[in-house]
Simulated assay, not measured.
Amino acid sequence: MRAYNKSRIVGQLLFVALGITFIYYLLTPSVHQSDAVKPQIRKANTDSIIVYDMNEITASANAREKKEEVLILTPIARFYPEYWGNLLRLSYPRNLITLGFIVPSSRDGTKVHRELKAAVQAVQRGPVSQRFADVKIMIQDSGLSSGQSETQRHKLEVQKERRSKLASARNTLLFSALGPKTSWVLWLDSDIVETPADLIDDMTSLDKDVLVANCYQRQGEKVVPYDFNSWIDSEPAKELASKMSKDEILLEGYREFATFRTLMAYSYDEHADKRTLMKLDGVGTTALMVKAAVHRDGAVFPTFPFYHLIESEGFAKMASRLKYDIYGLPNYLVFHYNE
């Protein structure tokens, strides 16, 4: 009986203790944020500041020897394995190359992104000596479709809108990927499937502000001109432009525009020196080497009619207005995919 009473007394004491504890927490005000223990604020690490002396960034005829960094930029709406294979055959040291891509955020773009990412990972997870310095992939709703055929893409009536969207994608890619140590920017279209392996060495060795290769296409045993955006201006073209409204663009390679410009595409001589230079007023971007300083100085791809030019041809006009020289290599061929 005494054991029973003892157990009952202990139980009653525990019940009273729990009750007192409950009333205490019920009546005690909650702790304010100002009364709580504050996390320590870490001082900024001044060692994390990186200073770049832009005066030391060179773009010279001795790019390889001076270890000048090259940024290869490609808007990509369709993944061509042949483009990637050709890119991997370039002989310039990969530790000096950064790749930049912009892919449309669409159903087609998802497939392109998956294919591109797999190709990139196969290289970047391989031997360190074979890896690129960096690879950047941008995804943006550019409005560019990968489902169009070559004929549809080149219809005159879609050129202004299409090339405006392409110019916008190029600018986004450029602004996002250009680094403070970049010396050269190589614009290489995603449907360029064959170039000389020494493309970067060859083009940088000529030490030009803007330099474009001649883009052809293989058709069986023949090679035929493909890109007509690299040209020398003419008086008839200037006269045509003078009669246009400010929102119109003058395009090359269409019967509707009798420009009589000298087209680099038709200046190819297979027996002549590949290093022959041709001063130009307009350029294409199939394989376009640009000193990074030209872009940093403000030469970009106009998304609107700029002196009646747009995108790559507008870029050439902008660069020339900034007093940079524009050149082409009429006998130096790169090849476009043949659909």
Rank of each mutant, 00 (worst) to 15 (best):
L186C: 06
L329F: 08
R321L: 15
R125K: 13
L277K: 10
E221F: 01
Y4P: 00
Q121R: 07
E252W: 03
R255W: 01
T74C: 14
R42M: 08
G282L: 03
H113V: 02
T58M: 13
Y83E: 01
M289E: 04
L99F: 06
G220S: 00
Y324C: 01
A61S: 13
R255Q: 08
L211F: 04
T46A: 06
S146A: 14
E270K: 13
R114M: 11
D273A: 14
L288W: 11
G143D: 04
P305M: 13
K243F: 07
L240P: 05
P127L: 13
A119W: 03
L14Y: 11
I249Q: 01
A36Y: 05
K317H: 10
R42W: 01
Y25D: 01
K317N: 10
R131E: 02
Q219E: 08
E150T: 06
D201E: 14
V128T: 14
D47I: 03
E221D: 11
T74F: 11
A287T: 11
T98S: 13
A77E: 04
M138D: 03
K323V: 00
E65R: 11
L27Q: 03
L188D: 00
R275D: 13
S60E: 03
I192Q: 02
N5Y: 11
I232R: 15
I72K: 07
K279D: 00
V210C: 13
M1V: 05
L211G: 02
I139Q: 02
L206R: 12
I57K: 10
F132I: 04
S60I: 11
N171I: 08
K155L: 14
S142I: 10
P236T: 06
H308F: 07
I200L: 10
Y52F: 14
T276P: 00
V210L: 12
E311Q: 02
H154N: 13
M318R: 14
K222C: 02
F101V: 04
R2D: 06
I310G: 02
P236R: 09
L288K: 10
